[in-house]
Amino acid sequence: MHRSQAEQAADRVRSAILDGELPPGSHLDEGGLVGELGVSRNTLREAFRVLAHEGVVEHLPHRGVFVRRIERAEGHHIYAARRHLECGALRDLAVRAQPVDARLIDAVDAAVTRAEFARERSDWRTVGSANAEFHLRLAALGENPIVDRMMRTLTVEVRLLFLGTGDPLEVHARYVDENRRIIDLVRAGHFVRAAAAMELYLLRAEAHIVRDESGPEGFVTEL
């Protein structure tokens, strides 16, 4: 599918933001980006509109366009939405009681493996992107395109939230092993246990990321 210049420009700006090159609160200099991206001001402004619709940037009157900063209250809403979508997708697999496409499970597993290898290299940026892919792929097990679309939007907000918390090692390192345990439960067909594990995981992650507290020590290991 052919993508317009504005969409391509939005892709590049979005990638720079989600890779941490443009942190939350950064002012997006229109003149500099026009030269860097090789597009017109009108094209860049259309790209900004795309990104604003996605919640990646925000336009502040008389000040310009800025990378969106997620406030604490929004962080709680983000985690509530994650619990609805991700845990709901896993519970739905149990309700349907039908085999899950093994290729979809393999895709979730591959995301976890990528995070594990990146962790060994202390490549925390890759760990972060692999963790995001894990959650997207996990929700996609239900093969519901509406859930997939909602998860893609939510994942951008999650990444922005993480970027505002600081050290990527502190943000991502502790979750890799839990991702592995959850996909192992899914592969074994224990969907209700996987949903319960994911709910506890997200509650503790919310306490860690949004409240800046450690929450209850450790993760539940037997469900």
Rank of each mutant, 00 (worst) to 15 (best):
197 A>S: 15
166 G>H: 06
183 I>D: 11
194 A>V: 07
191 F>I: 06
180 R>A: 14
190 H>R: 06
173 A>G: 08
188 A>D: 01
195 A>D: 13
177 D>K: 02
196 A>G: 08
190 H>Y: 06
184 D>M: 01
174 R>D: 14
172 H>P: 09
174 R>Q: 11
177 D>N: 09
186 V>P: 14
174 R>C: 07
188 A>H: 00
198 M>C: 10
191 F>H: 09
176 V>F: 04
169 L>G: 11
190 H>F: 05
195 A>L: 09
199 E>C: 02
168 P>H: 01
167 D>A: 05
170 E>S: 05
167 D>Q: 01
198 M>L: 13
175 Y>F: 15
183 I>L: 03
180 R>D: 11
180 R>M: 06
169 L>F: 14
185 L>M: 01
184 D>Y: 08
176 V>Q: 05
187 R>K: 05
166 G>E: 00
166 G>Q: 12
178 E>V: 08
182 I>S: 11
171 V>P: 10
196 A>K: 04
193 R>L: 09
191 F>G: 05
191 F>N: 06
193 R>K: 14
196 A>W: 02
178 E>C: 04
175 Y>T: 14
169 L>I: 06
189 G>M: 10
189 G>F: 06
189 G>K: 00
187 R>E: 10
175 Y>K: 00
198 M>V: 14
196 A>V: 03
170 E>D: 07
186 V>Q: 05
175 Y>L: 09
181 R>N: 13
195 A>Y: 15
189 G>C: 08
184 D>S: 07
167 D>K: 02
173 A>N: 09
185 L>P: 07
185 L>Q: 02
190 H>K: 05
185 L>I: 02
191 F>K: 00
186 V>Y: 11
199 E>D: 02
199 E>A: 02
182 I>P: 10
193 R>C: 07
166 G>W: 13
175 Y>I: 10
192 V>I: 04
193 R>Y: 12
173 A>V: 03
177 D>S: 06
167 D>H: 05
186 V>W: 07
188 A>V: 02
184 D>V: 07
199 E>M: 03
176 V>C: 12
170 E>F: 01
185 L>H: 00
188 A>G: 01
190 H>S: 06
198 M>I: 08
174 R>E: 11
189 G>S: 12
166 G>F: 10
184 D>G: 12
185 L>D: 10
192 V>G: 00
169 L>N: 14
170 E>R: 03
188 A>L: 00
194 A>P: 14
167 D>S: 02
169 L>C: 08
183 I>P: 07
166 G>I: 08
167 D>G: 06
184 D>E: 14
190 H>P: 00
171 V>R: 14
198 M>N: 12
177 D>P: 11
166 G>C: 12
182 I>A: 07
179 N>I: 01
198 M>E: 15
172 H>C: 10
180 R>Q: 13
171 V>S: 14
181 R>Y: 07
178 E>R: 12
177 D>V: 01
190 H>G: 05
192 V>C: 04
174 R>G: 15
181 R>E: 05
185 L>A: 01
167 D>P: 03
